[in-house]
Nucleic acid binder design. Structure first.
Length: 491
RNA sequence: GGUCCCAUCGUCUAGUGGUUAGGACAGGAGAUUCUCAGUCUCUAAACAGGGGUUCGACUCCCCUUGGGACUACCA
């Protein structure tokens, strides 16, 4: 039998790490088994739905390179794949359930339910949830309510006795007493829209879904869904509940732990391959040794059996490490293209006639020290903006006074200049400068640091000669001369 | 409160009755070096506790503890 799985998010907010991980596992599972991966938009909550969220869903999947075989935008034999476009369908099936005596109309008002709820919590009652007030209305009562135009919902008649079991690939059999299952949950809302439970079950069945991979928070409603399949007389699919993704404090990952939306990560300069690789490893492993995987590789080797049952903590530091790794794998050209928008955002390219060329100049300097593309600004801003005349204090290496520093820089300058202009190999100039330091009784750094600060305005920078080359000789010399003057005036 | 799920270094994990309990991130130390980073080497760090089962338990069972999820006309 062909494997058919789906990712079925509801567009009520930005795509977050947990959701994406679920999408990824479904995708990999489908690919690894030559099955189909379906995207379904569960937009039945009209109050929380936003266009932005829907667009973000598409953008996120595109960015990660997660393509789907069936779904909105690409179509498929079981469409439409947006639940709001299947509106009539759910109603039909819900009514069928009523006709079969498996569900019933409920006329309870929001107010009644609310007061019921508060009464229950106040009394710390064993009974939680709906009191099944409308479960046994007579046909006369129903008729009267309908005539009076009282709106109704449709509720499932959950059996009062017995128990329901569903099988989970990871967890094994999970059984719940029917009396512990949510008492007669709403299937069809008064606005005619289905609830998650109804729409989900109908669509999964109609779309031929064979495996449901979703977050563990859905485990409690597993039995309810089985009850629904039974009410319809359908065969339930296989279940596989995925461990949750937590924050450092062991609570469900949320904004207070840091970024959670893929958009955030993207804007900070994470690479899709890094995010995809790392996220896949929270809750799944290959052999405990290997941890670099491309999307294509995961599509080969992914297996349900290696999914962990315990929830996992999302480690931002390790993600950073992955990101640095993937940045280093880029060619200069690739990195430059990725860098352009981040350099623009940092205001570095306002004067650049050729943005890509500018980024290309920068790429080799930063490749080994970049963790996030968004960190590019301070690293190379000296190439695009004059850092200004350095202060005396900033020019002095640790433990060195103005006099000796003046001497060092003023002697180093001609060596550097002559060397560069005559095309001497950099390694040779470097050696000369080191020797100069030795002659002056300074540490090597005592000569290099003032040059570095002169040129970059910072004690931290890419290798000196790389900086000079990227800046251009003329500007570099000017900045050194400027520093010599500062030192001369203060020695 | 009730129901259900889970439990190996700080974190992600390997391990399916007999291992010096392995790897990675983060941490520490060192090497390389013009700073930073990178790279390399080394290092510290775990089977939650208690009962069983067994010749033998991290591995199987039970209890305790701890953590989490759910308990909506949200998904």
């Amino acid at each position: 039998m062909e494997v058919r799985v789906r990712y079925a998010p509801s567009p009520t907010g930005l795509q977050h790490i947990g959701g994406v991980r679920t999408a990824l596992y479904n995708y990999f599972f489908a690919r690894a088994n030559q099955g189909k991966f379906i995207l379904r938009v569960e937009d039945t909550d009209r109050t929380r739905y936003t266009d932005e969220a829907l667009q973000d869903l598409y953008d996120t999947l595109d960015w990660l390179g997660i393509d789907y075989d069936e779904g909105p935008r690409v179509g498929g034999p079981f469409g439409p794949y947006v639940q709001s476009e299947r509106f009539e369908l759910y109603k039909k099936y819900a009514e069928q359930l009523v006709k079969d005596g498996k569900a019933y109309y409920c006329y309870c008002t929001e107010e009644r339910l609310e007061s019921l709820r508060s009464a229950q919590t106040e009394a710390k009652s064993e009974e939680q949830g709906y009191d099944r007030h409308c479960r046994n209305l007579t046909s006369e009562q129903i008729e009267a309510n309908e005539k009076a135009g009282i709106p109704h919902v449709i509720r499932l008649k959950v059996p009062m006795e017995g128990k329901t079991t569903f099988h989970d690939v990871l967890m094994g059999d999970i059984t719940r007493k029917n009396s512990d299952v949510s008492p007669d949950p709403v299937l069809l809302k008064s606005d005619g829209f289905p609830t998650y439970h109804l729409a989900n079950v109908i669509d999964d069945h109609l779309m031929g879904v064979t495996h449901i991979m979703r977050a563990q928070e859905w485990i409690p409603s597993g039995p309810l869904h089985i009850l629904l399949y039974q009410a319809f007389g359908w065969e339930p699919p296989m279940y596989c509940h995925l461990p949750m993704v937590m924050g450092k404090d062991g609570k469900k990952l949320s904004k207070r732990h840091g970024s959670t939306s893929v958009r955030d990560f993207r804007e900070q300069g994470y690479l899709p391959e890094a995010l995809l690789n790392y996220v896949s490893l929270v809750g799944w492993s290959f052999d405990g040794q290997r941890e670099f995987f491309s999307k294509e590789e995961l599509s080969q080797v992914f297996t349900l059996e290696k999914i962990n049952k315990a929830p996992g903590v999302f480690d931002y530091k390790k993600l950073d490490w992955f990101n640095g790794h993937y940045i280093r794998l880029k060619t200069d050209e690739e990195l430059a293209r990725l860098l352009v928008p981040f350099m623009e955002k940092a205001g570095l390219l306002d004067q650049a006639p050729d943005k890509l060329e500018a980024a290309l100049r920068v790429a080799p300097l930063v490749k080994e020290r970049l963790r996030l593309l968004g960190d590019i600004g301070p690293m190379v801003s000296f190439l695009f903006k004059d850092p200004g005349e350095p202060s005396l204090e900033s020019l002095l290496p640790k433990g060195q006074d103005a006099q000796s520093t003046y001497l060092a820089l003023s002697k180093a300058y001609p060596v550097l200049r002559q060397g560069l202009e005559s095309g001497e190999p950099e390694s040779q100039i470097e050696e000369k400068l080191s020797n100069l330091a030795l002659e002056l009784g300074l540490k090597v750094n005592g000569v290099f640091m003032p040059i570095r600060v002169s040129i970059t305005g910072s004690t931290v920078s890419p290798p000196l000669f790389d900086c000079i080359r990227a800046l251009g000789y003329d500007k570099s010399f000017e900045r050194i001369q400027r520093s010599i003057k500062v030192l001369e005036e203060n020695k």
